[in-house]
Simulated assay, not measured.
Amino acid sequence: MTITVSKIGDTADLLGESPIWDSENKCLYWVDSVNCLIKRYDPKVKQYQSWKTPSQIGCIGLAPNNSLIVSLADGFYALNLESGEINTLMQPIPPNEKVRFNDGKIDRFGNFICGSMGIHAEPLGELYRMNRVGESKKLANGIRISNCIAFSPDGKVMYMADSLDLKIRAYDYGDGNQDLLEPRIFFDTSGLGSGPDGATVDAEGYLWVALISALY
């Protein structure tokens, strides 16, 4: 396998997260979480565009009608890419200022799966699933830093990690509507001296994981 790595642009992000390739429009989205910016790069014309958000960004996902779904610190939002308007989709009740949303993905069935984290890495985070009509359900709790959310090509396995546990979990995910059962440990990263962060699955079913450089 030959892997080519190239840098996009000359401006560094304070915290670059959640890269997503839009295969229909042939452009790349990602976020600078701390700077509260959603960015888009069109490699064909080498053009950048960005949108400002009102709070720190956890992750984004592609959505219909020229929009993105965005997890901000306190909930899920829809960003209209044409107007820049941001509308609330879901906020946990009651709100908790000690928690913010972090990593997430669109599953193979069109649901948005996103987990939160304790601001100071306390086990206060929760994992939510929101379907296409905006109905949400809590799937798990007691999470310190939710990360590594990804899905097998057929959508029947979900990967997820609490980064501070140093273990990637694999859940039987079914049709995207069922509760989560007890997971199996897919991979233990402790032997690598690091914890799992963002992740994705390629077309052949291999899980690619970014490791953090330091542990808390």
Rank of each mutant, 00 (worst) to 15 (best):
T2P: 04
I3G: 02
V5K: 11
S6R: 09
K7I: 03
I8M: 05
G9F: 06
G9K: 12
D10C: 02
A12N: 09
L14H: 06
L15K: 06
L15F: 05
G16V: 00
E17A: 11
E17C: 10
E24S: 14
N25E: 12
Y29G: 09
V34Q: 15
V34R: 15
C36W: 00
R40E: 12
K44A: 15
Y48R: 13
Q49E: 13
S50A: 13
K52L: 11
P54V: 02
G58M: 12
G61W: 02
N65A: 15
Y77A: 12
N80D: 15
E82C: 09
G84C: 06
E85Q: 12
E85M: 05
L89Y: 04
M90T: 02
M90P: 00
P92C: 12
P92H: 09
P95V: 07
E97G: 10
V99P: 02
G104C: 06
K105I: 01
K105Q: 05
D107W: 07
F109A: 10
I113V: 15
I119W: 02
I119Q: 14
L124T: 03
M130Y: 11
R132K: 14
V133R: 15
V133H: 12
K137F: 03
K138N: 09
K138G: 03
R144G: 04
I145A: 14
S146V: 03
C148N: 08
A150Q: 07
S152A: 08
P153S: 07
P153V: 01
K156H: 10
D162H: 07
L164A: 01
L164M: 07
D165G: 11
L166G: 14
K167H: 03
A170E: 08
Q178D: 11
D179V: 04
L180W: 01
L181K: 14
R184Q: 14
I185L: 11
F186W: 11
D188R: 08
D188V: 00
T189C: 15
S190T: 06
S194A: 15
D197A: 08
D197W: 02
G198C: 08
T200F: 07
T200I: 07
D202E: 05
G205V: 00
L207M: 06
L207K: 07
L211G: 15
Y216I: 03
